[in-house]
Design a protein around this nucleic acid. Structure first.
Length: 562
DNA sequence: GCCGTTTTCGGCCCGACTGTTTTCAGTCG
């Protein structure tokens, strides 16, 4: 039986939720949550680590108890402790915690006094209007819970693509910049860390007249609702449903506040713990010594400097070893968009692209690319009207003629060939051998069992003609789960066969992801970053692939850049 | 439940805003 890391972290989170509703020791609860987060962020499967007899207590925050519990989950698929807790408290209570404004204390009270166990119980009680009479609750709180429950059902759980968030952040930043009293303004949070999806937007501004800035912020014309408004902080909901938090601080706290609101939370905690060892205190206003004197805080650089660390780019601030690396002067020199000289995957009207070969070439030249690969689909995928052997040869000729007219720019003849169910490729070997570059990818049979799916992909990339494995997991963010494959084995084969692994730069794919990219790098696998553009405008998506690569610690040397 | 140049107990990151209170608990990030 396969037990995934996500199942282990789900169980730990449920234990933490129930313990919290039960009023247990908060630090014990935190230990479970930390463990859940650690397991989620682990690039290796815990099950594999246990099978390899690795010592799980070497992981930070994991002691004998939690290590034994992970082992129990891997071996039995469940955790006795959770079963015991469920006898005392209904498990549905944990869902109530997802409603904004409902934390463990209130959920416990609703359960104890009104026997509210589920969303539907809550809805009924709200309709009866009996919640306002509980001690510590009131008219306003009841109304807020009612609204939050409604929004919970409307919004679902989806996070927004980075690109979609950018479209909302940029004009808002511009609006804030135009307020004369605003000195600096920057979007922080997961947006600044360039995470593939964004939950809400955190904006930081500095000003000597904070209240005025908050006031003007709440007048932004895209705001649907003001959730909260204080002297230095306000939360609003935009018409799009996106939540935006603005925090205004004094200019001399800019660096500390930017650091704080950029996160990640775990990165901050690591820094704070480091500060404690030096008898310092870190908060959003600065770093303070024992006498409460500010010793850093104006700039992020100054703060990292105080910790004897290199400046850590936001993309790396995920508590994945970046602080240690920065203190040993060993941070990677992250790849930038400028390092990339071309694009290795795009489509034209010869398959499912919307633009002609000539148009795509024109657009790529305008972007100052030095080369591109034209990689239309192979014929197998009926809906994409892909190329068969004859079609490929015709396109090769067409590209050859076009290349003759170019000075320094180069067009590579390529293909995105389908991987069949048995791992064979959708074009004859002879045809594939005539191409400059061959990408292979899975577009069908997403549900094969792990062993078969892995064998299928390994067979495909073992084909001597293949250069790149495109969108390896086939996931589409918020839409399609990744296929079940053993990426470690695939990376191993990729290295042996000198096949590159793609970071597909499409904002909804970003496949492989940041952690997987880091793992690939560690295993010595080359990465290709390409847009998979189906229209000329999409060539600009390369930036999102670069963000993901940076989050995966990639340097120019790890990537096919020219 | 974890952890240790304060090592086997006693700590564990820190502050803003709201609503219900009348000094603060609860929630959020």
């Amino acid at each position: 039986m396969k037990v995934y890391n996500s199942e282990i972290s789900d169980i730990f989170n449920k234990v933490a939720d129930l313990l919290e509703i039960n009023g247990s020791n908060q630090f014990r609860i935190r230990a479970y949550r930390e463990a859940a987060g650690l397991v989620t962020n682990q690039s290796r499967q815990i099950q594999d680590m246990i099978e390899d007899d690795e010592d799980l207590t070497k992981l930070p925050g994991i002691g004998d108890d939690l290590a034994a519990k992970m082992k129990e989950i891997v071996e039995t698929g469940e955790l006795k402790q959770l079963k015991e807790l469920e006898k005392k408290l209904p498990i549905e209570l944990t869902q109530l915690l997802d409603i904004e404004g409902l934390g463990p204390k209130r959920v416990a009270k609703l359960y104890q006094q009104l026997d509210i166990q589920s969303m539907s119980d809550l809805k009924q009680s709200l309709e009866k209007g009996e919640i306002k009479d509980l001690e510590g609750f009131g008219e306003k709180t009841q109304k807020n819970i009612k609204q939050a429950l409604k929004e919970y059902h409307e919004r679902g759980q989806e996070r927004t693509y980075l690109k979609v968030a950018e479209e909302q952040v940029q004009p808002l930043i511009q609006y804030l910049k135009e307020i004369p009293q605003v000195k600096e303004v920057e979007a922080a949070g997961s947006y600044r860390r360039k995470k593939e999806t964004i939950g809400d937007i955190d904006i930081l501004a500095t000003s000597s007249d904070k209240e005025l800035v908050i006031k003007k912020f709440t007048k932004y014309d895209q705001i649907d609702k003001i959730v909260s408004q204080g002297e230095t902080k306000s939360t609003v909901k935009l018409r799009t449903g996106m939540q935006v938090d603005l925090r205004v601080v004094d200019p001399n706290s800019y660096g500390a506040a930017l650091l704080y609101f950029t996160g990640s939370k775990h990165h901050n905690i690591e820094l704070r713990n480091l500060a404690i060892k030096n008898n310092w205190k870190v908060n959003e206003y600065g770093v303070f010594d024992k006498k409460d004197k500010q010793i850093a805080g104006q700039t992020e650089e100054g703060i990292y400097d105080l910790f004897d660390a290199q400046y850590i780019p936001p993309e790396l601030r995920e508590a994945r070893g970046e602080i240690d690396a920065a203190r040993q002067n060993q941070l990677p020199k992250l790849i930038t968009l400028k390092d990339l000289k071309g694009d290795l995957q795009m489509h034209t009207t010869d398959s499912d692209g919307r633009y002609s070969l000539e148009k795509m070439v024109e657009a790529a030249k305008e972007m100052e690319h030095q080369y591109i690969a034209i990689t239309d689909h192979s014929a197998y995928m009926g809906i994409t009207q892909g190329l068969d052997e004859k079609g490929v040869e015709e396109q090769i000729e067409k590209i050859k003629k076009l290349n003759e007219k170019m000075d320094s720019f180069q067009i590579l003849s390529g293909i995105e060939v389908d991987v069949m169910e048995d791992g064979s490729l959708d074009l004859a070997d002879e045809t594939l051998s005539k191409l400059d570059i061959v990408l292979c990818s899975v577009h069908t049979k997403f549900n094969l069992p792990r062993k078969e799916q892995t064998a299928r992909v390994i067979k495909a990339i073992s084909h001597p003609a293949v250069n790149i494995l495109s969108h390896p997991t086939t996931r589409i963010i918020n839409e399609r789960e990744p296929i079940d494959i053993d990426l470690e084995k695939i990376f191993q084969t990729a290295k042996e066969k000198q096949v590159a692994i793609e970071i597909n730069a499409h904002p909804s794919r970003l496949d492989i992801n940041d952690r997987q990219a880091k793992e690939a790098k560690n295993r010595g696998v080359k990465i290709a970053i390409s847009t998979d553009a189906h229209r000329a405008e999409e060539l600009h998506n390369l930036q999102y692939g670069i963000y993901q690569a940076r989050r995966g610690w990639l340097e120019p040397v790890d990537v096919i850049i020219a």
